[in-house]
Design a protein around this nucleic acid. Sequence first.
DNA 1: CCTCCGGATACCCTGCGGGTATGGCGATTG
DNA 2: CAATCGCCATACCCGCAGGGTATCCGGAGG
Lengths: 301, 301
Amino acid sequence: MAIDLRLMRYVLAVAEEGGFQRAAKRLVMAQPPLSRQIRNLERELGVTLFERRPTVRLTEAGRVFVESARTILAESDRLAERTVLASRGEYGTIRVGYIYSAVFETLPRLVAATGRSHPGVTVYVRDAWTPELDAALLADTYDLVLSRDLPQRPEYRRETLRRERLVAVVDEGHPLVRHGRAGLRDFAGQRFCHPPRHLAPDRYHFMTTALERTGETFERWESPIHGLGHLDLGDRRSFALVAGSAVGQVPVGTATIAITDDLPALELQMVWKRDNTSATLEIFIDNARGVAHREGWNDPA
Amino acid sequence: MAIDLRLMRYVLAVAEEGGFQRAAKRLVMAQPPLSRQIRNLERELGVTLFERRPTVRLTEAGRVFVESARTILAESDRLAERTVLASRGEYGTIRVGYIYSAVFETLPRLVAATGRSHPGVTVYVRDAWTPELDAALLADTYDLVLSRDLPQRPEYRRETLRRERLVAVVDEGHPLVRHGRAGLRDFAGQRFCHPPRHLAPDRYHFMTTALERTGETFERWESPIHGLGHLDLGDRRSFALVAGSAVGQVPVGTATIAITDDLPALELQMVWKRDNTSATLEIFIDNARGVAHREGWNDPA
DNA sequence: CCTCCGGATACCCTGCGGGTATGGCGATTG
DNA sequence: CAATCGCCATACCCGCAGGGTATCCGGAGG
């Protein structure tokens, strides 16, 4: 015979009530079977858990038993609760991969909203570049990905989460800063800084065609490192282009300038696999839709 | 009905074997009752734990259940084991208070020996001065105390653990260092540094009488702080007196000099309360006796 | 010495958990 | 496409673990 939760409850009741009769009352049962159960347990373990005379008190071994039993019982109580929550997707983990530019404002909002409405949901987040996100999503390493130009695949479902205008990031001493806004051609001849080209080819294409359409020429500089390396501008004739949600979040020493050109908006998309049936994922997606709606993420700003 | 450990084992078996028949086999039972138990559980929770067609697989909720169930089962397995160990004193906590001078060598040896022979025993240690140790022992805050001159009380049992000669601690540039040994009168006129007098009155008395018996006079300096403050000697005409086990353990910049006077040995005693029936305490005491015997702690060195 | 309180013992009985036989559904194969 | 096989579900039976009632016993208090 193995020790089961019932026996733990019995021992706990006797320990806490300090007597078999009171404990039996609390357990809504008669005293003799309770006494017998505990005696059987003691015989099986070969250990006395209670001194009974002159008064019922825990032995040292009893104290150890009670201590462990308490945590086990507490954990088992939560087991049922958690399982029910999990069936509705309200308990569990969702793994979200995202491109760097989502870290400024979009991702934190989503995580915060999910955490507030569903405290049992853990959102695991990790940044990466587009090719890595694609591979991870395919391999089911992530449940959902926030990206701009993930390849089209039949097994993917995608939804546009946010539309953003471009803004330029420049050194705070840059001559255009005081206007606050500028056209791309105002940057003619200056140095365009961008992230490693092979890590975000579509994005690179989007930006270079925008620059070419101005008819002007630009110097170029490709940052060798991931992340926000291309924002380390270094002088007053360099500029980078990022999504509008970065405004107010760029590194110290830099400033943002709104771009007035009539360009198609940058789209940030949520992408997940059609066959991913996780209810937690559903909840996260619904939440994201709600946030996008409330915050007006569909009108480029 | 509540979820009990048996059900957790069932779910776990089905999850790990990937089928009801194999799981039943592992559980040494027939398949139908197993299926029924799990279906009842699912009904009670109002949650499906397994997809059964086309193949038996865990649902999201099932994964959460299994995850929690694993830790609960592991913990319950340990419960019985720990309880049995505890009945022999081999699992539990013992709280040991000690005076600073035991920290050099004596206490670590005892803790290490106990940890090696009884991995389930946690030794909680705390240093303090004699009056504090006395109060804590009386109040059952500690189970055992290592001290030199605790008051005699009828409820205490005590045993001498170690006899030690005095050694002097001096700055490493002190003129007597190169001899390695000296009589107390060789320190005549120098500054005797000692811990706060009211915190170890008997020790203070022991040392001052030893100094007075030389017929010489000494300057005195009472450190205002606890701990090893009185070993912060500062010049080459100061000395402190400590128990011999401190040799090789004193702060950098200081050195020890053996004292050749024929003085009564310093006794380090274990003291505990007669009515403390903790089996863990017994084990610790037996261990300490063993270490003292093996290390020859009874002949002053 | 008696009483009373509380745990232990003796004995009964019910229902839960497990067994056997069999049905049903989906996938695989000639 | 039919037949077969694998595997889980259903139906029904049974034994015993666990709970109930009645009673005994030991120690503390008056």
